[in-house]
Design a binder for these strands. Structure first.
Length: 473
RNA sequence: UCCCCAGUAGCUCAGUCGGUAGAGCAGGCGGCUGUUAACCGCCUUGUCCGUGGUUCGAGUCCGCGCUGGGGAGCCA
């Protein structure tokens, strides 16, 4: 390929760049070329310092430019944000603050940035940075967030791969409108100005798929089908909810991890969730240390210690019924009533995980009336084998259950809640032949990132977030 | 969707009792032998979110709208 390039262009492509992460770990004396963006430019009388960052790590490399450089005058007036190529020698830094710095021999201004560049070398509010989401990856905070996001995504695959779970790609376009997990975004090629009608309703029979379709709200049902073939599977992909939710914890487009295990019950499910969660805590401590230290000092004090405790300790578990009793004997007053049969409100969940256990807490075996049709009915006739993992600040981060594997019981339950079995014939077939106990859960990927970085708004852990009225970028 | 709060210079914010605005940063000029979001001096910058009203006079008080944030619901 290189030979081909040379015959066409007559020269080599860009010489290999050294990533700043590697340059900072290098030994003095090394000659190298780095490329990146100026974070700050400080000019003294006879020397200019440029903090150069290429996103490969949190830290910037200090480039030292002296007046002997041909374009020194230009460099001394360089604006924050400029893209540069710097070739020079790595030298031990005579000043405190960094072990090594790059003594520039040649600096090319690849892409200048003038004073109208919106990112300044000062603190900006997260709200403002959301309005310039196209530039915010170049900031300290968002650089760290998106590096951690990438590392966590890979850690998730590694966790499941190490345990023999099959990675399944479930459909993004779906005709399931009865999963009961939120409003669907419609997917259609019909003419929205003049849709075909039948009996006053939109007639989707002529639509692209011959029926009404939308974007998936969960890959669980298809995941279950694959679990009943491969044993242990997981999905990891985008999920869409058209709910008009305006909170720091909800987005219209987010990523969800959904493992599903055959021949497993609720306790197996909770055990997997706990092992998974603690693995990810340990992973970021071991692999994202520099970014975590930044979050610890600038976003949430004590973050590293909190995650460290989490990685080492067992999670608490509580029956729903015990949770109700715990709330009823609480001395604080709640806005919403506490009574067996009612769902736990955010204030209740926070009290349990923040005041009662002071850490992650599984609440299990909820009343059947407040949970989804596919959850396995317990022998008491009142509860289902559901579990929620609650964590301080973020609230519910995992929701899961053992699934109802008995055809007669799940069919009866669908009838009770008004879901037509015809639309889910394929799902019910899994209970018709070779059915077995199985269980799984859904983890909100962004909520995990929030919990492990201390970031408090989901819009700040997604590069280009989609929320009501926001689909820019 | 409901409740609460906010919107002032490019950015972060102050603005008292109603008397048409100010600081830091950014930017410009100058200074400084090595700085650490450098520092020092001087200079420039406004549809006070929009709209209607009260008033001699509104950034300030009131109504409506828009935008943002927080809380709630829904949930991951």
């Amino acid at each position: 390929m290189l030979e081909f390039w040379k015959t066409v262009h007559g020269e080599c492509p860009m010489e290999r760049r050294t990533r700043i992460k590697d340059a900072l770990a290098g030994q003095p004396g090394a000659e190298l070329t780095v490329r990146g963006w100026a974070r700050t430019v400080r000019s003294g009388k006879g020397v200019t310092f440029i903090a150069l960052n290429d996103g490969s790590c949190f830290a910037s490399l200090q480039v030292v430019a002296e007046p002997v450089l041909a374009n020194y005058e230009e460099l001394a007036r360089l604006g924050t944000g400029s893209a540069l190529r710097v070739t020079g020698a790595l030298v031990a830094s005579p000043a405190a603050g960094q072990a090594v710095e790059l003594a520039a021999r040649e600096v090319e201004i690849v892409g200048p940035a003038d004073e109208s560049y919106p990112l300044q070398k000062k603190r900006h509010s997260f709200e403002y940075l959301r309005t310039i989401a196209h530039l915010r990856p170049r900031t300290n905070t968002f650089g760290a967030v998106f590096r951690v996001r990438s590392m966590l995504a890979q850690a998730i695959h590694r966790f499941f791969a190490e345990r023999g779970f099959l990675y399944v790609h479930t459909p993004i376009i779906t005709a399931n409108d009865c999963e009961g997990a939120g409003e669907l975004f419609r997917v259609t090629t019909l003419d929205m100005a003049r849709p075909p009608l039948a009996d006053g309703e939109v007639d989707y029979s002529g639509d692209f798929f011959g029926q009404a379709t939308g974007l998936t709200v969960s890959g669980q049902l298809e995941g279950e089908l694959c679990a009943l073939a491969f044993g242990d599977i997981y999905t990891f992909g985008p999920t869409f909810r058209a709910e008009n939710s305006n909170t720091p914890r909800h987005a219209a487009e987010f990523w969800m991890v959904e493992p599903e295990m055959a021949f497993a019950d609720l306790m197996d499910d909770a055990a997997l969730a706990e092992e998974f969660f603690r693995y990810l805590c340990r992973f970021v401590l071991d692999n994202c240390r520099e970014d975590l230290e930044f979050f610890d000092s600038h976003v949430e004090k004590g973050l590293v210690e909190r995650i460290g405790r989490l990685a080492d300790s067992a999670f608490a578990m509580m029956e729903y019924g015990d949770a109700i009793r715990e709330l009823q004997k609480a001395t604080v007053t709640f806005e919403y009533p506490v009574e067996w049969g009612l769902d736990l409100q955010t204030e209740h969940e926070r009290y349990l995980t923040e005041q009662v256990t002071g850490g992650p807490l599984f609440v299990v075996n909820y009343p059947r009336e407040i949970k989804a049709f596919y959850m396995r009915q317990n022998d008491d006739g009142k509860t289902v084998a559901a579990m929620d993992l609650l964590v301080p600040k973020v609230g519910e981060i995992i929701g899961g259950s053992q699934r109802e594997e008995r055809l007669d019981l799940i069919t009866a339950r669908m009838g009770e809640v008004g879901i037509a079995p015809e639309g889910l014939w394929w799902y019910l077939d899994s209970r018709r032949w070779g059915s077995c106990p199985h269980a799984g859960f859904g983890l909100g990927f962004e909520r995990l990132i929030m919990y492990l970085t201390g970031m408090e708004n989901i819009r700040d852990v997604i590069p280009f977030p989609r929320t009501p009225r926001h689909a820019e970028f």
